[in-house]
C-alpha cells in the first residue's frame, strides 16, 4: 500500500521541532519511522504531515552522568546494541533489544520512538520500567512507569519530545526475560521481564496483558504473582485472544522471576 500524500519537514534543533509540532497541521513525529510509516500506509494513522527528528544532535549520544546511563532518545537501537557502555551498565537492555524486529529494523528504530509509540505488547517500555529508568522530555523528567496511560497513549503533550532515557547504574544480581511471539519479526503477544536488586528486592513488568505495562515490586515471588493476577486486563487483537493472554502472562512472569532469582547477570 502506498503512503497517502503528506508533507515532510526536518527541523534543525529541538526548539524548531517543538514549534513545528505545535502547528495547526497537527504533524506526527517521525523518529525511526519503523512503526508510524506502516501505520500511515495502512490508514491506522491519518496525519498528513511529518516532522523528522531523527537527525537532531540533541537526541543523540550515550553517556554516563550522575549515576545514570544516559541514552539519547534518537539513538538507533543498532548503536545501543553495539555500545560498550550499555553492555556494561544495562546488559539486560541489549538482550531484550535482540528480540526487537530484526537487524534491518533496529538499524533505524529508536528507544524514544518505542516509548512514545507506547504499544502495549512491546517489550522495550517494560524493560525500561523494570530497570527503573527515567524519561527526560523537553518539559520534565518522568518515571518510565508513568509514561504510558493506554494503548498508544502517553502523558506526553503536543510538541513535547522525549530527549533521553536515563537508566540508574545499579549492579543487579539477576534478570529474566520471557516472551511469546508468533514469528521473530512480529510484535510480541505477551511477555515478562524481571530483575533482582542487590537488596533482594524483585521488580517484575508484564507486557501484552493489559493496556499498559504491569509493574510489581517486592521481595516475595508468590506475593508478586498474586499482585499481578489482580491487575491482568487482557485484550483481543489480531495476534491472540484475551483468554490466551490471561493464561500465559502469569506463567511467563513466573519464569522471568525464576530466571532473575537464579541467574547472576
Amino acid at each position: 500500500m502506498k503512503l497517502p500524500p503528506l508533507s515532510y519537514q526536518r527541523p534543525t534543533d529541538l526548539r524548531e521541532a517543538s514549534l513545528m509540532l505545535g502547528s495547526e497541521s497537527m504533524p506526527a513525529v517521525l523518529a525511526g519511522g519503523q512503526s508510524i510509516i506502516p501505520a500511515l500506509r495502512f490508514g491506522e494513522r491519518s496525519e498528513s504531515s511529518l516532522v523528522d527528528i531523527s537527525r537532531l544532535a540533541e537526541l543523540q549520544g550515550i553517556t554516563h552522568a550522575d549515576g545514570f546511563l544516559r541514552i539519547g532518545a534518537g539513538v538507533p537501537m543498532w548503536e545501543v546494541c553495539g555500545s560498550p557502555e550499555v553492555a556494561t551498565s544495562a546488559p539486560l537492555l541489549i538482550r531484550v533489544l535482540g528480540s526487537v524486529g530484526a537487524v534491518g529494523i533496529r538499524s533505524r528504530a529508536t528507544l524514544g520512538g518505542s516509548l512514545a509509540w507506547a504499544d502495549s505488547t512491546s517489550q522495550l517500555p517494560s524493560t525500561l520500567i523494570v530497570l527503573n529508568a527515567q524519561v527526560e522530555t523537553t518539559e520534565r523528567i518522568l518515571d518510565a512507569a508513568d509514561l504510558q496511560i493506554g494503548q498508544h497513549q502517553t502523558v506526553l503533550r503536543r510538541g513535547e519530545l522525549i530527549v533521553s532515557i536515563q537508566i540508574p547504574e545499579v549492579e543487579l544480581t539477576g534478570s529474566g526475560f520471557h516472551l511469546i511471539r508468533k514469528t521473530h519479526i512480529t510484535w510480541p503477544v505477551v511477555g515478562a521481564v524481571a530483575v533482582r536488586e542487590p537488596s533482594g528486592q524483585l521488580r517484575l513488568v508484564v507486557f501484552g496483558a493489559a493496556p499498559t505495562p504491569i509493574l510489581a515490586v517486592g521481595a516475595d515471588r508468590a506475593k508478586l504473582l498474586s499482585q499481578l493476577s489482580s491487575r491482568i486486563l487482557p485484550f483481543d487483537d489480531e495476534r491472540a485472544r484475551a483468554g490466551y493472554r490471561g493464561q500465559v502472562a502469569p506463567i511467563l512472569a513466573g519464569r522471568a522471576l525464576d530466571e532473575a532469582i537464579g541467574s547472576n547477570t
Partner: peptide, 26 residues
C-alpha cells in the same frame, strides 16, 4: 511494503534498512 519481509532491504550508510520504511527525502 510494511517492513515485515525485508525484500526491499538496501544499505544506508552501510547498515541494512527497509527502503519501504524510509522516505526518499529522508
Amino acid at each position: 511494503e510494511h517492513g515485515v519481509c525485508g525484500a526491499c532491504t538496501v544499505l544506508v550508510n552501510n547498515r541494512p534498512e527497509r527502503s519501504c520504511l524510509v522516505l526518499a527525502t529522508q
